[in-house]
Amino acid sequence: MGFGQFLKAPEYDIKIITYRDIFQSTALESSGCGDEYAERSAVILLDKGDMKKMVLKDGRKAVLKNNFGRVVVHLRPSDYDEGHEGIGYMTNSPWSNALVSSETGGSGVPKFKMITASISDAKDEKVTSFDE
């Protein structure tokens, strides 16, 4: 057990933009309750510079949290040419939807594509499962 175990993991604010990924959508067609769908959905892609700054490592997990929900997802660097500091990308799924605001201003349309949340190292926590 390292000393880090006793420290609260530092938290950073990020914006999350959701997008569609065909391999994830294909997994959804096969089974929305299946492992492959979970594996392809419970992921956040971060800017490489951000990962360094936040001391988050590829292959580890992150806690994403705001007033509306909390999920643990896999962490990976994105492969976009251009940097996207402060922005993380997630596919559209129950994992991203867990963080979408319930405030709609009465419009009937949630802000699916603009999520603000805090991110921190998930340490040993397991990835959130919606499949019990």
Partner: peptide, 12 residues
Amino acid sequence: SDPMSSLPGSIA
């Protein structure tokens, strides 16, 4: 349709 998946968790 699967609103438990497609709606915000806080609403679903």
